[in-house]
């Protein structure tokens, strides 16, 4: 491998990650509009550039050229800091995400922990943005976001703990490496670790939807109730940064699901592993996120808490127990089966 001095390597990664997020945020919006369009039997953006491909550019320019309005009565510092509090942790989380075996900014042993630590800062941004806006709709939205995030962190973390029990590591790259070989080695299909693995994946995916405030859990934004929720008062790039943060969080959620359950950068057939597989899986999940958004109505706070406490938490706890049991039992069972044959 070519040797690159460490500071230069980091700089390259920082630039790369920011470019990756910006590009993705822009083109995921385009994709979202296309997906929504076709689901609704229309075309979506098509005027700017071929297939409307330059639309994100035009939108970006528009957002940047708009005046940043700071309404009267807002808390000027919180108001300005909040969008950054959403975006920066999302950018930081990318540091530990392994795009391929070698393509990772920092291969940290506690990568999983780092991501969750940063993810919990995100909700701060929403809260402060809503609170700082001094707008009643925004305040209601901020309160909703916080209670929603707290409720969904629990089943998500229980599932993650289960995964750590299975993988014995928090190093994301190692987790991926454990899933090499064929499709059946992916954790989602590793029924020997716990028979409820596919369910665990669904729980994780649902929770990451809720964490990122995506429909059907977009209570915070709820445009038919709260106008635009916490970013009601934001204009121009203030809104743009919130938006980028939201999409960055979606990418992180889907990346984590890919890494933990879908074998990260491993190929389903064990051939040519690499970053393209990782991206393909992530985008497939992102497509599902969009597909879900354009299918369902929105839940309410009670419905959301109900789902979390009645279904997700008990099931993920059962999964935790089962996994614990399997860790002890599977070796015994295996020797028993071996002995029998």
């Amino acid at each position: 491998m070519m040797f690159i001095p460490e500071p230069l390597r980091l700089l390259a990664f920082v630039v790369g990650i920011i470019a990756f997020i910006a590009l993705n945020a822009a083109y995921l919006v385009w994709l979202e509009r296309k997906v929504a369009g076709h689901i609704q039997r229309r075309i979506g953006p098509k005027e700017v550039g071929p297939f409307g491909l330059l639309q994100p550019l035009a939108d970006g320019l528009k957002l940047m050229s708009k005046q940043l309005l700071v309404p009267k009565g807002v808390d000027p510092y919180l108001f300005k800091v909040a969008p950054l509090l959403v975006l920066v942790p999302a950018v930081m989380s990318f540091v530990t995400i392994p795009f391929s075996e070698n393509l990772v900014a920092r291969n940290i042993d506690i990568g999983l922990l780092v991501i969750f630590a940063f993810a919990s800062v995100n909700v701060m941004g929403l809260l402060l943005g809503g609170w700082g806006s001094a707008n009643k709709y925004a305040v209601i939205s901020a309160a909703r976001c916080v209670s929603q995030n707290v409720a969904y962190e629990i089943p998500m973390l229980i599932t993650v703990i289960t995964m750590i029990m299975v993988t014995h590591t928090m190093n994301l790259n190692e987790i991926v490496m454990q899933q090499d070989g064929s499709l059946l080695n992916w954790y989602i299909f590793r029924l020997s670790a716990s028979p409820l693995m596919p369910v665990a994946f669904l729980i994780f995916f649902t929770c990451s939807l809720a964490e990122t405030n995506r429909a059907p859990f977009d209570l915070g934004e709820a445009e038919s109730e709260l106008i635009a929720g916490y970013h009601t008062e934001y204009s121009g790039m203030g809104f743009g940064v919130f938006f980028m943060g939201e999409y960055a969080n979606i990418i992180i959620g889907c990346s984590l699901a890919t890494i933990l359950f879908l074998g990260g950068w491993q190929c389903p057939l064990g051939l040519y592993p690499g970053w393209w597989w990782f991206l393909a899986k992530v985008y497939l999940l992102i497509f599902c996120v969009m597909w879900i958004r354009w299918t369902y109505p929105r839940t309410t706070l009670w419905g959301l808490l109900n789902l979390s406490w009645k279904y997700l938490i008990p099931i993920s706890l059962v999964n935790l127990l089962l996994t614990g049991a399997m860790i002890k039992l599977w070796p015994l069972l295996k020797t028993f089966l071996m002995g029998a044959s």
Binding site: A36, Q40, D218, E223, S224, W294, Y296, P297, R298
Partner: peptide, 8 residues
């Protein structure tokens, strides 16, 4: 349904 958040 749009009021309830479903657009499609």
């Amino acid at each position: 349904v749009l009021d309830l958040g479903g657009f499609t």
